[in-house]
Write a protein that binds this DNA or RNA. Structure first.
Lengths: 152, 152
DNA sequence: ATTGGTGCAAATCCTTTGCAATAGC
DNA sequence: GCTATTGCAAAGGATTTGCACCAAT
């Protein structure tokens, strides 16, 4: 049941069982909330806010609290299973894609879209390092107006 | 596409008198708050929050309210005289530098430092355009740990 | 049985809004 | 004199914190 065998990419699709293992390795617990939130974040296939996710899992896990959703999303980011995208206005959005890509954020409606266009992250990290800054990740955001907002 | 419409390439040093002219051209008023906030943002020479600026101008303009500072900073960004940097946690910071450059944000202390290292903004904007997204600006943020937090 | 995690409520922080009074033009 | 802009107060929204109970190991 585990056709995934690619040690060279930060697992884009860690299964529920693998999440359980990851957590146990850190002395943490595999709760239904954690498993369901990760699954739901992926199932939605878009950039979701904490509250959207909470509503999205209501049927399956009624009563899940918003602090738990935030804590779980923080944990997923820490585990490298999600990315947090800060649009500047509105709530933070969480992205199930963890492979290198960037984002376009509409300044009118706030929607976030993926952008598969690489930048030279290496030289940015090197430049940061030269200034004594230990860079860990590079986030690129193109701000502007999305097609649906421009059309209307 | 007029270059006047690109906030990241606006005149790097518009004087107080020029700010007055810019405002009048838009039917807006040159208030002491606006002139002093722009001058103070530049004098501080770092990335400042709205509240830091409010405290910073207390001696000169006592009683200046926080809504006024926010409104003024929004206006300066719109005029291309400042950039807003969203770190994701903590308040938004405003940057008096409007020429092309990027940012390093410490995830421990939240401080923002400039990074003079170019990325290929043109190809990013082109890629966005290909997807129907009218990109206006590109923001690049390197997240990590700054030298002072690294405990050198 | 241990102790990490959850839900609840409330707190906190940042930013915006409504409105009467003020001040720039 | 107009009316844009201000200060005040309050609202609003997002996220975090404190704590008692619960449940995964």
């Amino acid at each position: 049941m585990s056709p995934m065998n690619d040690p060279h990419h930060a697992a884009p699709e860690v299964s529920g069982q693998e999440l359980t293992a990851l957590l146990h390795a850190r002395g943490q617990r595999a709760t239904p909330q954690r498993l369901v939130i990760l699954r739901e974040l992926r199932r939605r296939g878009e950039h979701s806010s904490a509250d959207e996710l909470r509503r999205s899992i209501q049927a399956e896990l009624p009563g899940t609290s918003i602090p738990t959703v935030y804590a779980t999303l923080d944990l997923l980011v820490e585990l490298g299973l999600a990315r947090r995208v800060d649009g500047g206005s509105g709530p933070a959005l969480y992205d199930p894609r963890v492979d290198p890509h960037h984002h376009m954020i509409c300044r009118r409606c706030g929607r976030v879209e993926d952008l598969d266009q690489s930048v030279d992250a290496e030289s940015l990290l090197q430049a940061a390092s030269d200034r004594g800054f230990a860079g860990e990740s590079v986030d690129v955001v193109v701000s502007g107006i999305c097609s649906s907002c421009a059309g209307t």
